[in-house]
Amino acid sequence: MTELIEFKLNGKNVKLNVDSDRMLLWVLRTNFGLTGTKYGCGEGFCGACTVIINNEAARSCSTSMKEVKGKEVITIEGLEREGKLHPLQKAFAEKDALQCGYCTPGMIMNAYGLLKKNKKPTYSHIVDAMEDNFCRCSAHKRIVQAVQSASVKMEKEG
């Protein structure tokens, strides 16, 4: 059913007339042109499409627009502040925690969700939280290191 859906996207209020059964992933990629959020499996298994909804990591391929109504959505494009990379983005780049980079936005957003809940995650907290995000290039070791190093930096910077 087509509805007027209002929500907050990367800090801005947006509204859109849209079939409310459509999944957020496709609305982000097509209606908003935000192609940083990726498709990997479409059924919630891989995490490539992860975004933040009301401070929690969520799979945009399996989240309908209905569920987004009135909420606050952050995508990979919304992480930079005043042209500066978010500490997670910086850590992923510095630790070389990526190869092809296709899973990277989903990894970063999922880690963002973790750090919202848990500011000082241990190794096993990170592994648990990232468990359902797939990286076929297999950059796992460095992804864990990147999340660790970003959390330390963010702690320090407050």
Partner: peptide, 20 residues
């Protein structure tokens, strides 16, 4: 570090499906 890392961590790197 990878030459293309910044593009890839910001979601700006374009893959074929991102061509519209």
């Amino acid at each position: 570090i990878h030459h293309d890392a910044v593009e890839k961590v910001t979601g700006k790197a374009r893959y074929s499906g991102d061509i519209q």
